[in-house]
Every structure is written in C-alpha cells, then in structure tokens.
Amino acid sequence: MINATELEILLVEDNPADCELTIRALRRRNLANRVTVAMDGAQALDFLFGRGDYEGRSPDTHPRLILLDLKLPKVDGLEVLRAIKADEQMRSIPVVVLTSSREERDIVESYRLGVNSYIVKPVDFDKFMEAVTEVGLYWLLLNEPPR
C-alpha cells in the first residue's frame, strides 16, 4: 500500500550528481514521490530520530526504505547503519547500501551490521538506473515489511 503522505524512501547521499541520478532512476518507476534526501550521516540520523533540524518529527514515522551511501561527511554510512540496526524500532527498516566502494571490508562490515542489500553503484548510467529501480521496486513493492 502506498500511502502518499507516508515517507517512502530516505536517500542518504552526499554527492548531488549521484543523488540526482538516483532520484531520476526512482522517478522513472514512480518511486520517487516521497524521497527524502539526507546529505550526510548526521542529517540522516537527525531525521530518523527527530533531532536537530528535524526536531519535532516523530521518530515513529519510518521511511519504508533507506538508501545509504557509505562515504559520507560527518557521520559515515556504516555508523548510520549501526545506529539504525541498533534501534529497536528502526531495525526493521530495509537499508540498502548504495556505494561506489567495492572494498570487501565495507561489504563484510555492512552485512555484519545488518544491511539488507549492498549495491555497488555502476559507473555506466544504464546499469546504474537499472540497479536503483530494481532496488526500489523490490523493497517497496515486492517486499512485505513486518507490521
């Protein structure tokens, strides 16, 4: 069920190019209606936990999917992942790491922290679009999250 008012996707991405390309890809599948972008890890966490700039936002309103870059200013993606998965309420939010890194230690660490998918951003545009749309489709349409 797509609730229009409901936050659909939290995109944590510091690179505006990647951010735009990602949203563009989501939009192609009409998945970008409710995308919130956090430009660094700290903002992402403030958003999720209703702190800082997002003071007053109910932390109980969870995004249905979090697309998380690893290399982030302030608080990097792995810290954000750790915080999400450590929270009892939020750990059930699907988190997909969307990163340029093919480093094995990033992959291993992400899965260790409970990431739901780890996608390496392809340099090739077509491949990138394809990857993002597939992730969006899967987690938002096919996946049945716990109630």
Partner: peptide
C-alpha cells in the same frame, strides 16, 4: 586506494550519467 575507488568513480559516474541524461 579507498579514496580512489570511491572518489575517482563518482565523477566518472556523473560524467557518464549526465552525458546520458
């Protein structure tokens, strides 16, 4: 190398991506 793998690829991806756009 970590930086390279991240930071060299992001511009490429932007170049490729936006040239396609």
């Amino acid at each position: 190398t970590y930086s390279v793998s991240h930071d060299l690829r992001a511009p490429l991806r932007a170049i490729d991506g936006f040239s396609r756009v």
